[in-house]
Design a protein around this nucleic acid. Structure first.
Length: 605
DNA sequence: GCCTTATAGC
């Protein structure tokens, strides 16, 4: 029969201290016993109390016990690195284990420079690093994004002969990935003899870091072809993120299937990724279903759900989830408030938004960041409270950035307020962060009120600056593959069928009353040329492709890297009506659900 | 005695 010992340090501490300082007592309680008590402490206070007893009675700990003490202070949740350090300094000849512990503790607490300095100290003191040292040191490099140091450490790994250790190799893959050196990551990965799940997860994560999403999917395929390891949640989280970025709900669904077949109970992290994937791929309902069936939720899950509802324009529901979160006892942080405020902004819930902004500052004591202000400017701007929006910007405790001024500018465009638009534009130009779109908005506004001189001035400024626009693209999924289109694209296979389709659509559109909005074309070319340019915007190519390659009546889903131009917006509204298709488009700002000639954003975006 | 992989935001 074995007996379970249920005594803890609290029992010890609660006994009255009737004994004088006697050696006898300490003898009756050997060092292993003390160590046991120390390791079972629940916070730093308790630990210090028990440790004080140890010191008072002059207990001499051997190096094994000292190492354990350092580990307890450095690695437990409640531990203090300062205290760990003070014990560490009492060790006469710290071994690699002690250094490893200290390095790990510092990495866990994000004291990354300290971690690297300890590694340096270790070498200088002549303590030989072992194979356990490198994963921690490399993690410090990866979190710092310190590629140069990482390369140096890689050299040490070679010299010490640990280049064949799978833990070290995985850590190297991770380090190179996080530093963006994808080729180096791949080199290390290819040399791993027996790849573990963590190896695959690390390389997929590395490709995710550099946003090479197709490669993430390919690697998952390679991994299952090899058939040596089973996927884990951590492998698939990055793959889900690839699906999200590719805007591919069908691939995402496959991953969901793999998860359900391989893992009995999904954890919070992967479920949160699933929600994020579904929601950002336009399948709000599916995301909600996962959310509702979660057995455990954390602040990430709530944030994903709230901002998901926000980008779909479901403000009221987002606020409901937010109050649910608060009722469950979660402390809202600044990120969740970005979601809440953007929900109010996308749905035009002005009073609620203003209320939340107040609550955040005065009840939750969260200082607004530029993102919060951005939401508020959007919110006020949307319903035409432009003066209030401008006043808010002026009252900001931090310097407004280009995003803030651009929000104000686009609100001015919608409500045609030239006076404030000029202020916003001027600030954008001063910041030197302006893009061609900003000039264009202002020029269009001048054109609307027939101020042709000003239009010319703006055009001239644009030409002088020779501004380059980020190339826009649209992604669409058909037959389990994701296709990418860029404006005026003729490099795609069968481009002529797509262009034929565009021409066919043109006739129908004209008949229904669509008029191309050539003010969206930035180039200094004649009207006819502008119309030609407008026809082949990436979104239109993707729609034409979708109409050809999907069955009649089925919905189209498109993902864009930039915001939609207003001509594409109008165009898509007409197409949804003429071809009786639901078209869901995610741009970099939100979702647009086109149906029967209208859009869920109510023409404000 | 210690190690590697994973989730949110204008």
């Amino acid at each position: 029969m074995t007996r379970t010992i249920v005594l803890s340090q609290t029992h010890f501490l609660s006994l009255p201290n009737n004994q004088p300082n006697s050696i006898e007592l300490s003898n009756s309680f050997n060092e292993k016993g003390w160590l046991c008590l120390l390791k079972r402490c629940k916070n730093m206070e308790e630990f210090k109390q028990v440790h004080a007893h140890v010191l008072k009675w002059g207990i001499l700990f051997d190096s094994f016990c000292m190492s354990n003490l350092v580990a307890t202070c450095a690695l437990t949740k409640w531990g203090s690195m300062d205290y760990a350090c003070s014990i560490f300094n009492q060790i006469d000849e710290p071994c690699s284990f002690d250094y490893n512990t200290m390095i790990r503790g510092n990495v866990n607490k994000m004291k990354l420079e300290e971690a690297l300095l300890l590694y340096v100290e270790m070498i200088e003191e002549g303590v030989e690093p072992d194979k356990f040292t490198y994963p921690f040191v490399l993690k410090a490099c990866s979190l710092l994004g310190a590629c140069d140091e990482g390369i140096q450490v890689h050299g040490h790994v070679f010299k010490m002969g640990f280049e064949g250790d799978v833990f070290v190799q995985n850590s190297l893959v991770n380090m190179y990935g996080k530093c963006g050196a994808i080729n180096c990551a791949r080199d290390v990965f290819d040399k791993i003899g027996e790849k573990s799940v963590a190896s695959w997860s690390a390389i997929i994560g590395a490709y995710a870091c550099v946003e090479m999403w197709h490669e993430c999917l390919m690697l998952l395929g390679e991994m299952s072809n090899e058939g040596k390891c089973r996927v884990e949640e951590s492998t698939l989280v990055n793959v889900l993120s690839a699906c999200t970025h590719l805007g591919s709900p069908n691939l995402g669904k496959c991953i969901h299937g793999i998860l359900l077949r391989n893992i009995s109970e999904l954890n919070v992290v992967v479920e949160t990724s699933l929600i994020d994937m579904y929601v950002k791929c336009g399948c709000l309902e599916k995301g909600l279903r996962v959310f509702e069936n979660m057995s455990e939720k954390n602040i990430f899950s709530y944030t994903v759900m709230i901002s998901g509802l926000a980008i779909h324009g479901h403000g009221k529901e987002a606020l409901k989830v937010f109050s649910e979160m608060v009722e469950e006892g979660f402390e809202p942080d600044h990120v969740v408030f970005v979601g809440v405020l953007s929900a109010c902004s996308h749905a035009g819930l002005v009073d609620e938004g203003l209320q939340c902004f107040k609550t955040m500052q005065f009840e939750q004591k969260i200082n607004p960041t530029v993102q919060h202000y951005g939401c508020m400017v959007d919110l006020l701007g949307r319903i035409g409270m432009l003066k209030e929006a401008y006043e808010l910007i002026k009252s900001m405790s931090i310097k407004p950035n280009d995003v803030i001024w651009r929000s104000l500018l686009s609100a001015c465009k919608v409500h045609l307020n030239l006076e404030i638009a000029e202020i916003a534009a001027e600030n954008l130009f001063v910041l030197n962060q302006s893009n061609p779109g900003d000039y264009l908005v202002l020029a269009n506004m001048y054109a609307k009120v027939q101020k042709w001189d000003d239009v010319a001035k703006i055009r001239k400024k644009m030409a002088e600056k020779s501004l380059v626009q980020t190339p826009g693209f649209s992604l669409i999924e058909a037959k389990r593959k994701v296709y990418k289109f860029v404006s005026q694209d003729r490099s795609i296979p069968q481009w002529n069928t797509i262009y034929d389709m565009i021409h066919q659509m043109e006739w129908q559109l004209k008949f229904e009353g669509y008029i191309p909005d050539t003010s969206q074309v930035l180039l200094d070319v004649d009207e006819e040329e502008k119309k030609e340019r407008l026809k082949y915007h990436s979104q239109k190519l993707a729609i034409a492709f979708g109409l050809i390659h999907t069955s009649e009546g089925s919905p189209l889903r498109i993902t864009r890297n930039l915001r939609m131009c207003s001509d594409c917006h109008t165009y898509t509204k007409y197409i949804s009506m003429i071809y009786e298709r639901e078209i869901t488009i995610r741009d970099r700002h939100r979702f647009h659900h086109f149906k029967n000639g209208t859009c869920s954003c109510k023409d404000y975006w």
